[in-house]
Amino acid sequence: MTDAVKEIRALAEKGLAAPDGAVAVRKDGICYISVAGADLKNLNETDLIVVQDDSDVSPDVMPKEYFLYLALFERFPHINVLFRTATESVLTASIVGRKIRPMLDDMAQIVGVSVRCADEDVFGDARKIVNATSAMKDRTALMIRNQGAVCAGPTFDDAEVSAVVFEKACKTVIETSFLGGGHYINPIECWLMHKVYQLKYSKQAKK
């Protein structure tokens, strides 16, 4: 897990992983989740909870994202990295709590047709966790009210790009409001761009 630890530290150094958030990685079918209160910039392998079928994890070390992350891993087999971001504009958008739709085509391509917002208390409510995982279908991010967004991807690079692009998307939505409002891209075209990007990217990844 040395590489994963380095990647997590890098996400924290870049300011993309929220300092009070948890990071989760799935490798060879095993999930690793950073412990509650972990210092992500100085993370060690011992700061990762190894989640296996017979795991007996103490609630004291479980971060609040624990069950949401496990539910997301369970629902989406292609996702291997999850982290919570609270960059400036993402946090602002999560405070407002409204669904964010693409005004720029890079969000449509990378993140999806929209990013929905889960309730702040989603982490401790099984029904809300189920709804939140459904809200992330065909998307790479999910906002959490007042707490930024969970970003996901098959690799660290993909999850990082999702966070960077979603920050840009939120910044655009916020700042165009000062210019009299921005124009959203038609949802059907967003869906089309997202599917074309996924197809193109998966072809490139195979090469």
Partner: peptide, 14 residues
């Protein structure tokens, strides 16, 4: 380019 501030203005279509 996909530069930040210009992209914001582009999204405002102004």
């Amino acid at each position: 380019t996909h530069q930040m501030n210009a992209s914001t203005c582009a999204a405002a279509r102004k």
